[in-house]
Simulated scan of single mutants.
Amino acid sequence: MSGTEKSKAHAEQAKGKVEETVGRAVGNERMTTEGRADQAKGKSRQAKEDVKDAFRH
């Protein structure tokens, strides 16, 4: 996996986790949901890069 894509995936997951946690703390369901969505996008980006890596080797 390229370093930049890996970093983007991890950053997106971390951002989503923080957003979800803050949303839960303040009782904002929309923020919690958006945080979960960001985490899912990060995980899908990481999965896509893992598949690319599997075919490169």
Rank of each mutant, 00 (worst) to 15 (best):
E20S: 11
K6N: 13
E20D: 09
G35A: 09
D53I: 04
Q13C: 11
D53N: 10
M31T: 10
K8Q: 14
E29S: 15
D53V: 11
T21R: 12
V22Q: 13
K43G: 02
R45K: 11
S2E: 09
A14E: 12
K15W: 00
A40Q: 11
E19M: 08
E5W: 03
F55Q: 10
R56K: 15
S44H: 04
T33M: 15
K41L: 04
K48P: 03
F55N: 09
N28L: 07
G35V: 03
M1N: 08
K17F: 06
V51Y: 00
R24G: 08
G16L: 02
G27I: 08
T4C: 14
A11W: 08
M31Y: 10
V18K: 10
K15F: 03
K48M: 11
Q13F: 09
K48A: 14
V51A: 05
K8Y: 14
E20L: 05
V18R: 08
S44M: 06
M1D: 12
D50L: 07
E34V: 02
T4F: 15
G16S: 04
A37F: 03
F55M: 08
R30Q: 15
D50H: 05
A14M: 07
S44R: 02
K15H: 03
E34H: 06
E12R: 06
T32W: 05
R36E: 13
H57P: 11
G35C: 06
D53W: 05
G23M: 00
A37N: 10
R45N: 07
E49T: 03
G42H: 00
H57C: 14
Q46F: 05
G16E: 01
H10D: 15
K17C: 05
V26C: 08
F55R: 08
E49S: 10
S7Y: 12
M31I: 10
A25C: 05
T33C: 13
V26Y: 07
A14C: 09
Q13P: 07
G35H: 03
D53C: 10
T33L: 15
R56T: 13
G23D: 04
G27P: 09
H10M: 14
D38G: 08
R45W: 03
A14Y: 09
V22T: 12
Q46H: 07
K48I: 06
E34L: 11
K43H: 03
K15L: 06
D50G: 06
K43W: 01
K15N: 04
F55D: 10
K43I: 04
K15A: 11
V51F: 00
G35S: 08
T32K: 13
T4I: 14
S44Q: 07
A11E: 14
A54Y: 07
E34K: 10
S2F: 05
Q13E: 14
R45M: 07
M31S: 14
K6V: 07
K15P: 00
R24I: 02
Q39M: 05
R45T: 04
K17A: 12
T21G: 05
A9W: 01
D53E: 15
H57T: 15
A40I: 02
Q39I: 01
R30W: 09
S7L: 14
K43Y: 02
G42N: 02
G42V: 01
R24V: 06
D50S: 09
D38K: 12
Q46G: 00
A11F: 12
A11M: 14
V26D: 08
R36A: 12
M1Y: 06
R24T: 07
K15Y: 01
G23H: 01
G23S: 04
G23F: 01
K8C: 13
A11V: 11
E49Y: 02
